[in-house]
Each structure stands twice: as C-alpha cells, then as structure tokens.
Design a protein around this nucleic acid. Structure first.
Lengths: 333, 333
DNA sequence: TTGTAAGCGTTATCAC
DNA sequence: GTGATAACGCTTACAA
C-alpha cells in the first residue's frame, strides 16, 4: 500500500489519516507518551504497521533539538588504538540509543578543525582525538565544539573532560623492565615528531638514571616505519629497543627476523599499546597495555553527563600496565 | 557576543538580523547560491563570522531531504575485516562530504533488523554487512532499507548491489597450495556455524580431488577459538590446517608454539583475509587476501549511484589472491 | 483523552 | 538581487 502523501516516504500524517486521528495522537502512540485510549492506540499501531511507517529521525531531531548521535574524530581509522576507542564508544553509546558518526581526518591535521566542526554540527556532542593538532589550535577549537571530550590530549587551559593514557609512565615502566634485565644501552624509535603522544613518551624518557644510555631514532607510527628502522637500530649498538607503539615493534621484529637477529637473545624489543595481536606473535611482544576501548566507554559517560547538564566525572589517566612476554630478556653478555 | 535569539545556539535568523537582510539571503550566501550582491554577501559573512554561526545540519537535512550520512551495519567492530571496510567506506564517502554512522550489532543477530532499520532512518542510505542473518530475514528486511548495498552476502532474489569476496575460490586456492606441497590430510577450522561466509568456504571445500582427505573441526572466528583448536588439530593427524580466517590462524599458531610444534616443519597453517598483521608474524602467515577496504570504497560508489538515481555498477566478486608466506611448506615425510 | 497549532532551522518558490 | 512565505516531518503546549 503506497503512502497517500505525494512525498517519497510515509509520514506521520499518512498514519494519522489512515487511523483517523490527529498527528499528535500518532506521535503520542509512537513515543508511548501520556495516556492514549487503548483502542485508538491499537488502530494507530495497525495503521503504522500496514503503512510500514518509520518516523523521520531528522524531523524528530529538529523538533527535539537532539539527534542521538555523537561524533568521533580520529586521525586514522587504520590504527588499532582508535578502532578500539571507536568500539568502546559505539557500544557504550548504543546502550542508550546513541549512534556514532565517524570522521577520519586521514592524518590531515590542517583539515581537522573543519572536519571536527562539520562533524559536530551533525551530532549532539563530540569525542575528539587529535594527537597532532597544535595546542593553540585546540585551545581555539575546543570551546566551539562543546560538549566535547578529549582523548589522550592534555592541554592546560582547556575546559573539557579528558581521558588519557599516561604515556610517560608507561615508557618508564618499559625502561625499568629492560634495565632490570641488565640493559644499559637502549634505543627509542620515536613516533611522529609533532605528535603529543610522542612528546609524552619523550617526557617520560628524560632524566633517566644516569647509568642508562638512550639513543633516539626517528621513526614513525606504522609497521613500515618499524621495518625500515632495523638498520639504524643495529647500527646504534644497543641491546634493547623501545618502539613508539606495537605496530612499529612488529615492523621491527619482522625486519630483524629477516636479518637473523635473535629476539630477545641478541636484542630485546618492547612495544606500546598491547594491541590485540601483541600476545600472538612469535615471539610474543613485551609491551604495556593501554585500555583504549575503556577510554571510549568512559568518553561516552562524560558525554552523557554533559548532555544531561550534569557535572562529568573526573578526568582519568590510565596507567599502562606492563605485559611481560617473550620479546624481552636478559642483556646479552 | 551572545546570540540574540533565546535558543541555545545561533541561527540563520540571528545572522540575518545582524546583517539586516532576510534569512533567504543568508541562506543563499552560506550556500554560494545564485547571485548575491557582493557588498551584502560580505556583510552576511562578517555577521556569520562574528556570531560564530554554523548552520544546523538537522534543519538542512529536513529541508533538503538529505542528511549526507550513510550507515554501516556490522556484526563486530573488533573484526579487522569490518574495520577495513569501514575505513574504505568512510574515506570514499568523505570525499563527497558524506559521513558514516556506524552500528555495531555486537553479534546479536536477532537485533540486527531493528538496528539496521533504526540506523537507516538516520541516514540517506545503508551498507549492510550481516553474515549471520538468515536469508529469509534478509529478503524481508533489505527492501525496506533501500537504498542499500550488501557486503559479502549473496542472496538470490535480493535486489541490492552486492560486493563480495569469493570465499569458495579463496579456500580452494589454499587447498591447492597445500596439495602442491604434497599435503593430503588437511583440517578445516570451521567458522561460526550459521555464518554465510563459513558456508561459502565449505562450498568451496566440497568435491575436492579424491586424493585429499579433509576433516572439519568446529571452531569459530576469533583468536581464542583458534587457540583452543590446537589439541583437536593435533589429534586429527593432519599435516595442513586451513583456518577460517587469519585471527583463528594466529590463535592456532600461538598454541602450537606453546606445544613446540614446528610450523611449517611439522604442520602447515594457512589463514584467510590477509589482515594487516599477517605478514609480520613469525612465521609470516600464508593466506589469501581479501580487499575489504576496496569493498568499502566500492560500496560507496554503488550508494552514490543509487542516491543519484543512477543505475549502480555491476556486482563484483573479488577473487582472493594467494599470499605465499612462511607458515606453509612441504608435507613432512 | 484528543485535537489544534505553533514551533524547530533551513531551503526554495515565488513575487517584487 | 532580495524578501516574504510555504514547505520539510515531528513534538508539544494549550484548548477543548
């Protein structure tokens, strides 16, 4: 049965006409609002069913001033960390009838403010993950985005809930782990130069015990970066390597394997993040775990408070937890 | 400068008032529509800027009958295949100003029709990935979801564009690969019993050459399933194992390593999908590659055609490509 | 309990 | 070139 109205899809008016009631009543029935005569309600439901009526979310959104959608802005959907955060956010929000709109900036930092603003317009709130955006750009942008929560980006003066991994602490734990194994000459495969999470790791690396010798090797955040870093690493004459993240560590492990370097016999390698795959490689990767999915969930909680006009919970810094696996071991004699 | 209207955010009316023009003119300026007097346009822009005006996407959506949003329904955001599809879709759609709304059914097949319907309402179109939904449910659901494109689900009688990986062909290539290495006794670690992609693989496995002996071992689609399958695999007395997917293969490899089983010396293991990590494990995983990101991109092209009232391009079946790596080798004597 | 009608913020069709 | 004004589809006082 085609809709009576001329428009492409059936509207509340079509249902009202068929059930011989006003649109207000249909609206009430569809939303289980107030008290509606059971007989009429049944008639409306029947009409809606036979017409295959589905309320327009857009019209509802306009009338209610609420879209039940939150946005997530990330620099790269291929990164397992952001995937985890997305999943946590999506599942938590879904419980409350909210959906997530994703915006992938494809690492284009310059476009991020526009992207975020545009994404924000379509949603009720935003989760912003922008590790590369300059602090002053964030300072300018974030207030316009409210309600918004930040992921892994601690900028003094920004008034938005923050959920973050304590990168500095994590990297220190990894250093400590290697030192306990007797390592003294270490290399750090640095992440993107302009990334805040790299800066945090570097901060954790500063002022180490005097007996640790650390060399920083420019690298990146991806498999291929780690893979290409093998020669510089070997040239550096170190016995332990801290990779920017697990991806980089995997890339390095692959290249070392090709060169017949024994891990951890000749060289210990540790990662960062504890992505799903870290425990299943050979050797399994020693790393620190960062609960990105939990960050996504907690981001939803903050968002929800903000949307409800409540005071959001405290900001949280997750202390990464050392996951001792097979890729690290005693310093070779 | 606070908005003059009583509402929480600044509207087109506020801008019009400030620039002393009608809302129609503001709208025209904001959309670069028709010809507007340069002087007036400048005034409007200035007012918009100083008021920090951002058009309401919801109101635009209602007026235009278009949200510039497409939905993606997947059973599990933790699965790398769906992540890739999401990324491909998101990036392709983003080029045209469309965003992606994700709906993760958390493997709850029963909820999928509701979820998909609800997601569809908020969008202009949908990409549906539902490997576990029964065919008749799909036949009933898909027509109500139009415009919609299906991923990896070939159901006779459904009139929607389809992009799919030819699982049957892929698994046969893997068998052939192992046979060439001299293997005759093989095991297949089956995926979820009710999944269409598992059924397709089984279809590819039927009617193999008579000299191949294949045993099917119930398993699953995740790491842990593969990990737990190690003992049944060893008990089966086979020399080659085809895992449902790469995740399962990794789980198995890990468990075999714990048991000191040499791969591929004692046992060859192959996966399916060629996820990002497959080449970086030790041993690197022999598998077949399925271009999930490409599926996402192509899904967008089909969606776009549908939205433009054009005839979408042909359905495509991607033939998986064998990726020979180190986890498979000659049959032990 | 039900209906009328006024928004919600934009766009688009007209006149001017 | 610009401005009223009627949609767009729904919700919600306010009346009845």
């Amino acid at each position: 049965m085609p809709p009576s109205s001329s428009s492409g899809s059936v509207t509340i008016g079509d249902v009202a006409a068929m059930a011989q009631v006003s649109t207000a009543t249909v609206s009430r029935v569809m939303n289980g609002r107030s008290t509606v005569d059971p007989g009429i309600a049944a008639r409306v439901l029947a009409a809606a069913e036979s017409l295959r009526y589905a309320p327009s979310a857009v019209a509802r959104g306009l009338a209610l001033g609420r879209t039940s959608t939150v946005g997530l802005v990330v620099p790269d959907l291929a990164n397992p960390s952001f995937q985890s955060a997305l999943r946590g956010l999506s599942r938590a929000a879904g419980v409350h009838g909210y959906r997530v709109l994703v915006a992938d900036s494809a690492e284009d930092v310059g476009e991020e403010p526009i992207l975020a603003t545009e994404a924000r317009r379509r949603c009720d709130a935003l989760v912003l993950c922008a590790p590369r955006m300059p602090s002053d750009a964030l300072l300018d942008l974030v207030p316009r985005l409210a309600p918004v929560v930040l992921l892994n980006r601690d900028v003094r003066g920004i008034d938005a809930p923050l959920l973050a991994v304590d990168y500095a602490s994590g990297i220190r734990d990894l250093v400590h782990h290697l030192v306990q194994f007797g390592h003294r000459r270490l290399a750090y495969l640095a992440g993107p130069k302009d990334s805040a999470s790299n800066a945090e790791r570097l901060r954790g690396l500063h002022g180490l015990d005097g007996d640790v010798d650390l060399v920083e090797i420019p690298c990146g955040a991806r498999f291929s970066d780690g893979h290409e870093a093998a020669d510089p690493v070997l040239a550096a004459g170190v016995t332990g390597v801290l990779a920017f993240n697990d991806l980089v560590a995997f890339g390095l492990l692959g290249a070392l394997h090709e060169r017949n370097v024994d891990v951890p016999g000749d060289l210990s390698v540790v990662g960062f993040d504890d992505i799903q795959f870290a425990r299943y490689t050979t050797p399994a990767l020693t790393t620190v775990s960062a609960p990105q999915e939990e960050l996504g969930e907690q981001a939803w909680r903050r968002l929800r408070s903000l949307l409800d006009g409540e005071r959001p919970e405290h900001n949280v810094f997750y202390r990464p937890r050392l996951e001792r696996r097979a890729s690290s071991g005693p310093c070779p004699a």
